[in-house]
Write a protein that binds this DNA or RNA. Structure first.
Length: 424
RNA sequence: GCCGGGGUGGGGUAGUUGGUUAUCCUACGGGACUGUGGAUCCCGCGACUCGGGUUCGAAUCUCGGCCCCGGCCCCA
């Protein structure tokens, strides 16, 4: 028996309907903010991802060689492909560019709850905009999506990598060492951080500031405390002021449920400024449903200095939340009408009637198996059809059919010519 | 990659001090009922994750693979 590869899923009818509903809701929110959909290839040149994504991701890439010997990779994320698309196709367009995408990504990892080897991301990129205004829009929009989905139990944590980077720059810490330190901060390992700071010979005062910074978590008041803490470092201070401005704008967008958290660092190395993550604690170990921030990937790819901000939902985790909250809506019916030929002789007539209904947008099923009437009725019932049209010899003699309302059980004799108006 | 728990018809399950025909529910097919569903009854269909080992005999004990679930690392 053939088996589904590990960490992948088959989606059946109901689940697809649920996913489609959520997809449509997000799509609609994105479009009300003026974002347009794009689609990029499922695989790209391997080096698109190995260049700047950071070690964490590159170790999990599905890579292969094609018959021409090219090194290719199934995409592990979508920000790099979108940056590539921008450089290839859109550099000369007026800014800002607003785009969204929905597609699957692949990572070779140990599957567990909320983690698959093929998973879906739905997100936006705002290319060439000015922060913090654009950052605020992206964050507000992601909150808007969650509200639209009927979710409430989420937390949006916002930080700014510029604050910590500024401190490290001030102490003349090399870029590679900085990346290592950021990775440890992302993990939240305080002891490991302390010992690493020691081995890197970071001045005690700097270490102390860092350790205080990463524990900063709260609302508005964090800004003032942090300002004082980093007052002597010009870049860090600027980053704090930027963050403050972001919060002002965010509130203008009508969102103030944020949590300022200077300990978030993100797993991808290309983030440079404001970063944010959204958590839903009920989800367990894989509680992060979204993440994003400002990055300079385009510049790293040689596309000029273009400031960009983006974020993506882990679509599968989002589905998990929707399910948990019972926020799912009622699923659309499979068919509205079933056409039942009473004997084989009426089959052609039944097909004809079904086609007429379909042409008018009515979801219709017609029995093609020569089943007995009772069987067709029983099936119509389990499909949730509202009406069954019975096509039989007796009625046809008078150019009529019998239409049965499956809920009430009542039935009516109708002329064939009256059929369409019955459904209006 | 690491740790722990699992795997019985399509779905959900009972059964393991080794021993006849592997339980029940549901779904599905047929019939009671040849132009009337959601009810009842009858019949049918269909499973021990795979491979090795122990044994007269393995769903049950044992080893390994595969897959699933939870966690670690990491991340969406």
């Amino acid at each position: 028996m053939p088996q589904r590869p590990r960490g992948t899923r088959d989606f059946l009818f109901d689940e697809m309907k649920e996913r489609k509903q959520v997809e449509d809701i997000l799509r609609k929110v994105f479009e009300t903010y003026g974002y347009q959909e794009i689609k990029t290839p499922l695989f790209e040149d391997l080096n698109l991802f190995t260049m700047k994504s950071g070690e964490g991701i590159t170790g999990q890439i599905y890579h292969f060689q094609d018959k021409g010997g090219r090194d290719l990779a199934l995409r592990p994320e979508l920000t790099a492909p979108v940056a590539r698309l921008y450089i290839n196709e859109l550099q000369k367009k007026s800014k800002p560019l607003k785009m969204y995408y929905f597609g699957s990504c692949f990572r070779y990892e140990r599957p567990q709850k909320g983690r698959w080897r093929q998973f879906w991301q739905m997100g936006c990129e705002l290319i060439g905009g000015k922060s913090p205004d654009c950052e605020a829009e992206i964050i507000a929009m992601s909150a808007h999506c969650l509200e639209e989905l009927g979710l409430e139990n989420f937390e949006i944590h916002i930080g700014n990598l510029g604050i910590i980077r500024g401190i490290l720059d001030g102490a003349n810490v090399a870029k590679e060492k900085q990346d290592q330190i950021m990775a440890i901060i992302d993990k939240g390992e305080i002891d490991e951080l302390k010992s690493t700071l020691n081995t890197f010979d970071i001045p005690p005062k700097t270490s102390e500031i860092l350790l205080t910074l990463i524990n900063m978590q709260g609302h508005r008041e964090i800004i003032e405390e942090t300002s004082k803490l980093v007052a002597e470092n010009e870049n860090s201070f600027k980053a704090v002021k930027e963050l403050e401005k972001l919060l002002d704008i965010l509130e203008a967008f009508g969102f103030n449920k944020y949590i300022v958290n200077l300990g978030i660092a993100r797993g991808l190395d290309y983030y440079s400024g404001v970063v944010f993550e959204i958590y839903v604690h009920d989800l367990g170990a894989q509680k992060q449903i979204s993440g994003g921030g400002t990055y300079n990937l385009i510049e790293l790819f040689g596309g000029g200095e273009v400031e960009s901000t983006g974020f993506a939902f882990g679509f599968d985790r989002l589905m998990e939340c929707v399910r948990l909250c019972g926020a799912g809506k009622t699923l659309p019916k499979t068919v509205d009408v079933v056409v039942a030929p009473i004997s084989k002789d009426e089959k052609l007539k039944a097909v004809e009637i079904a086609q007429k209904l379909r042409r008018h947008g009515i979801k219709t099923d017609v029995d093609l198996m020569g089943k007995k009437l009772k069987k067709i009725l029983s099936q119509a019932d389990s499909l949730g059809a509202e009406h069954v049209i019975m096509v039989g010899e007796r009625d046809l003699k008078e150019n009529k059919i019998t239409i049965k309302n499956m809920k009430s059980g009542k039935q009516e004799l109708l002329y064939l010519s009256q059929l369409l108006s019955y459904f209006k």
